[in-house]
């Protein structure tokens, strides 16, 4: 039996593991009956296509949209315009504290 390779769980993640009945045409992973989403895709591929048409265009889409959406997406985006190049330079990767001590990357902003 080929087990379903979709990641499941909330706090503890694992593979679904139910018997696969198909493969995702997008990424090829094995899918059980419960995890076949629209178009026969895995949930992840289906979600990214629904939103962006094609996964590869997602990042570009987001950047483009961001630049054109200062008022449409949400009003408060204006807050970020107060941070100029000088403010931002302090947050370049090489400006971080000793890498050995930095927290694990992305969530180093706040760690309780």
């Amino acid at each position: 039996m080929t087990p379903c390779a979709v990641t499941t769980g909330f706090f503890t993640l694992g593979k679904c593991g139910q018997m696969a009945v198909a493969g995702c045409p997008g990424c090829g992973r094995a899918l059980c009956a419960d995890h076949i989403a629209e178009g026969g895709l895995c949930p992840e591929c289906a979600a990214s296509r629904n939103q962006f048409g094609h996964p590869a265009s997602a990042a570009a889409y987001r950047r483009r949209r961001y630049r054109h959406s200062s008022s449409s997406a949400y009003q408060d985006t204006l807050w970020y315009t107060s941070f100029d190049a000088f403010d931002r330079a302090a947050f370049d990767p090489h400006a971080g504290a000793d890498q050995d001590y930095l927290d694990d990357g992305d969530d180093a902003l706040v760690d309780s």
Binding site: V6, F10, P43, A47, Y74, Y80, D87
Partner: peptide, 30 residues
């Protein structure tokens, strides 16, 4: 995964790589 559905909960994860932290926070907000 960038996307998960667990029952009635949908989980979406920000996966874009933005090296500068403040730029990353801004991209996350958007």
């Amino acid at each position: 995964p960038a996307y998960q559905r667990e029952g009635d909960v949908e989980i979406v994860r920000f996966t874009e790589v933005v090296p500068n932290l403040l730029d990353r926070a801004q991209a996350f907000s958007a």
